[in-house]
Amino acid sequence: MLTHATQRTTMKSDDRNINWVQEPRLGLAGRSYLLLFVQGLTTTLRHFFSRKKTVQSPEQRHEIPDPSIYRGVHRLNRDQRGRVKCVACFLCATACPANCIDIVAAESPWTDREKYPQSFTIDELRCIFCGMCEEACPVDAIELTSLYDLSGKSREEMVFDKEKLLSVYDRTKDAKPMRTSRGEGRGAGDGE
């Protein structure tokens, strides 16, 4: 027997909110199962003899169709003078859903900005590669590259610090140019 409480939560069969769907009736061909039999086997055989899509990984590299939208390892961009572009505004760290970005800000030695990141670490093991940091950055300092085969021998090795992130930029700047020059130029003529 149902208790009162469950009865109230159970929908009656004549409830107007229920949309009763009729199963479509199969024709003679469908009911004979032969059509499905032939269809299944021909599909399988077609794929069986088709060209294979596998990329033989270490020897062949996977071609990424559009590196500018791929979400791989992070990099910290440099500006035209080779300095880190980041202004330590913490927007990326705030946007990060995995809380994997850790920034220590300090007063900038340069005159064109107030702060710069004294240390900037990303825990690549915690990162979920969602690209929110890239979206949030007001000066396009952090970007996701098209490097997909990230690996390391220890957990410590996978925590990327500022130097490593900048070196990723040096490695990938030819393959994937910086998206904008936003944040450049402001006070570009200033001295150290």
Binding site: L2, T10, W20, L28, S32
Partner: peptide, 28 residues
């Protein structure tokens, strides 16, 4: 045999949700 089975269709399933056989009616 195949033709007869196709026409009679003994495996037609009768266990789809139906208006006249809801959970409530059975439990009551």
């Amino acid at each position: 045999c195949w033709l007869a089975t196709t026409i009679i269709d003994p495996t037609a399933s009768g266990n789809r949700p139906r208006r006249d056989l809801s959970v409530n009616d059975n439990c009551s």
